[in-house]
């Protein structure tokens, strides 16, 4: 019974959203505002049961780890974020959580720069590896603005633009695919789960 009601509710809300394609209307506004509220509503119980209870409440109040009163009090600073006078208290927990970016420096240099460059500079044993090398270098030079893009150098950097355009074309083709998949998913729900027309 609840499953059937659920499918009808979902179908009504799906059609309300689609109604925007005709023009903005109260059904769409209703669906949009409901979505925003319900999405945020999910955050609170999940955080309470899956984060606050195991990480703050249990260690402090059940296992009596009283040292944790300090981060507990600092964490309460978040609640003053919207206060005009005491808003600065929220900077303490934010600053504490930002500290870990220190680890991001060596880690991202390794994973995003060094590994990528190392692979790029492998022995250029076939035409594809040579093309990847030329493409990457020409794009990097294209974004190097301290030298005017003229003459042979300018021609080489324009090769970089071609590589980029092909790359953006591939992304664009995939983006078309992504958006259509979302539409297919919803129509599959309406035709299959709701109307039972897909076998």
């Amino acid at each position: 019974m609840m499953e059937t009601i659920g499918i009808w509710v979902a179908a009504f809300l799906t059609l309300s959203m689609f109604s925007f394609l005709y023009k903005d209307n109260p059904f769409y506004k209703f669906a949009e505002h409901l979505f925003v509220g319900a999405s945020m509503g999910y955050f609170i119980p999940y955080t309470f049961f899956n984060v606050f209870i195991p990480y703050a409440y249990n260690p402090l109040f059940l296992r009596h780890n009283y040292w944790l009163i300090i981060p507990f009090v600092i964490g309460l600073g978040y609640w003053f974020r919207f206060s005009n006078n005491l808003g600065w208290l929220s900077r303490y927990p934010i600053a504490f959580s930002m500290g870990i970016v220190g680890m991001g420096v060596p880690m991202s240099i390794h994973a995003q720069i060094l590994v990528q460059m190392r692979t790029m500079m492998l022995p250029l044993t076939n035409i594809n590896l040579i093309l990847i090398f030329i493409g990457t270098v020409s794009i990097l030079l294209y974004f190097f603005f301290s030298k005017a893009h003229e003459g042979l150098y300018g021609k080489f950097t324009s090769v970089g633009i071609w590589f980029m355009m092909v790359g953006f074309g591939a992304s664009f083709g995939y983006t078309v695919m992504a958006r259509l998949s979302l539409l297919i998913g919803r129509l599959q729900f309406l035709l299959g789960d709701w109307l039972g027309l897909i076998k």
Binding site: V51, Y55, P59, L60, L68, G75, Y78, W79, F96
Partner: peptide, 17 residues
Amino acid sequence: TWLKVMVSFAVILGVGS
């Protein structure tokens, strides 16, 4: 350990806003 306790309260940022 400390960060886990602190972020339990961070939910207010989204909800409050």
